Amino acid sequence: MNNYDIETVANKILEMILNHRPIPIEVSGRHVHLSQEDMENLFGEGYRLTKKKDLSQPGQFQSNEKVMLIGPKGVIKNVSVLGPVRNETQVEVSKTDAAALGINPPVRESGNLKKSASLIIAAGKSVIKADEKVIVAKRHIHMTPFDAKLYGVQNGDNVKIQTLGERSLIFGDVVIRVSNKYKTAMHIDFDEANACCYLKGMNAKIVK
């Protein structure tokens, strides 16, 4: 067998592996990450989040605490606070949420908050101003280093993915985020989930 034949066979084997190793899709609803300072301003000095349930990404959890988002045109109640606390407060909403609130947050990767949108966060009678803290999260794939090598991608790459469901579609500009702290999964918001008729357990594959 010559080198060309070996490469052809290897590529076919890799394609078979990837087709049987689809990427699970998870839908991320509106939520808030709080800094310790902002959490204490909302819930009291020395306050600690209380865990409701673990999320799919290791170490991340949904807390029992809820807040209200207040914008120029509307409010959204009972918004989940996710833990653990972060160095900086960050609010993630969909474009539909943003329209209801009357704000226009940019589509950004997590942590990129400069010149983002602002709103009010309330909990009970406590209120804080979240200046340049609001984004629409850019769709992304959390990926383990092993899976990144398997798929031939690196941290920060942008790829196209195809959803595998009744209303299959291709999402472009999906950022790859690689870490040994991650579990491989794609995250989209509810607007994107509605577009592809998302059902729990739906998967996706990278298309090149």
Rank of each mutant, 00 (worst) to 15 (best):
S118W: 03
S56T: 14
L69V: 06
H20L: 09
C196I: 06
M186L: 11
Q62E: 15
S94W: 01
Y4W: 15
E40W: 00
S116W: 04
V9T: 15
G172Q: 00
S28K: 10
N155D: 13
R108F: 02
L101E: 03
K160H: 09
N155M: 08
Y47W: 04
I176E: 00
Y151N: 06
A137D: 12
I6E: 03
E40L: 00
I25F: 05
H33L: 02
G46P: 00
F61S: 09
I176G: 00
S28N: 13
S110D: 14
Q60C: 10
V32N: 00
A98Y: 06
D147A: 07
A195N: 10
L18N: 09
R86L: 12
F190W: 11
Q90G: 11
F43S: 05
S110R: 11
I103D: 00
L164N: 09
N158D: 04
T89R: 06
V81I: 08
A137E: 08
V9N: 14
P84I: 13
K181R: 14
D38W: 01
H20G: 09
V136W: 05
Q36P: 05
L169A: 00
S179E: 03
S35W: 00
I141S: 04
L169H: 02
S35V: 01
Q36H: 04
V32C: 00
L42W: 01
G111R: 13
G111T: 15
K125P: 12
K115D: 13
N104P: 04
M202H: 02
A195Y: 07
A204H: 03
C196K: 03
V79P: 02
E15D: 15
V175R: 04
I17H: 12
V9Q: 14
S110T: 13
V91P: 07
F61C: 10
D131A: 15
A117S: 08
I13G: 05
D38F: 02
G44I: 02
K133V: 08
H20N: 10
T8V: 15
G46S: 00
F61L: 10
S126M: 12
G201L: 01
A122Q: 14
V107A: 08
V27E: 04
N19M: 11
E88F: 08
